[in-house]
């Protein structure tokens, strides 16, 4: 079906399923960094899952996207992650792992980032252990975009276990049950389903 679209003469730099992982991380990063605009919502509305827990979550995300307008999602994003006098969710690894922002997990992350050749963008002021930043890093590690290039599955796994898998699943589960969340409940479900697959897949590769 989709076979006709694949040009076998062009060797992809990373295997198809690995490329898809990077795309999903990129999508999660985009949705958690700022609210989706009308164009992205429309594109999300056209998604059709391909079965399994992740596919079901994707279907729900598409449904949520079709039933949301950009202004409402923008408000929802603000309530959830920015807030007036405090946000509903705190999407930082350090907070989830220690109860405080800017704690040792952030220092550990910065050390690993330096080792892998990753730096925070000049225009960004949030600490690097924000979930969106970590998703971007995972996508970049899969695509071999940093430092000396591809780190391989072992390198990805080490980074994932230490900085993502240790808390992000709980964050996505929290997002799914956030009282103010509508659209972002579906995002939480997609993230949780995806990370569950990621964890199992890393085990298989070991």
């Amino acid at each position: 079906m989709s076979r006709a679209v694949v040009d076998h003469n062009v060797q992809p730099p990373v295997a198809e399923e690995e490329h898809l992982r990077a795309q999903i991380y990129t999508l999660l990063a985009r949705l958690l960094a700022r609210a989706p605009d009308a164009g992205l919502l429309a594109a999300l509305g056209g998604l059709a899952g391909e079965g399994g827990e992740f596919g079901t979550a994707l279907d729900r995300l598409a449904e949520a996207a079709r039933g949301s307008d950009p202004a409402a999602v923008e408000d929802e994003f603000t309530t959830l992650f920015i807030g007036v006098g405090g946000s509903e969710r705190t999407p930082y690894g350090s907070y989830y792992l220690t109860g405080f922002l800017n704690e040792k997990p952030l220092a550990d992350l910065r050390a690993d980032m330096a080792r892998l050749g990753i730096a925070r963008a000049d225009t960004v002021t949030e600490p690097e252990d924000h979930i969106a930043a970590l998703c971007e890093m995972m996508a970049g590690l899969i695509g071999g975009e940093f430092g000396d290039g591809a780190v391989g599955l072992d390198g990805q796994r080490a980074f994932y276990d230490r900085h993502v898998g240790s808390w992000a699943g709980r964050f996505f589960a929290d997002l799914e049950t956030s009282p103010s969340a509508r659209f972002y409940r579906a995002v939480g479900a997609v993230g949780r389903a995806f990370l569950a697959v990621e964890a199992r897949a890393f085990d298989l590769a070991a």
Partner: peptide, 13 residues
């Protein structure tokens, strides 16, 4: 595993 979990090649479109 990816295929069964619904992460087929074109899952994101």
């Amino acid at each position: 595993l990816f295929r069964v979990a619904g992460l087929g090649a074109g899952a994101l479109g």
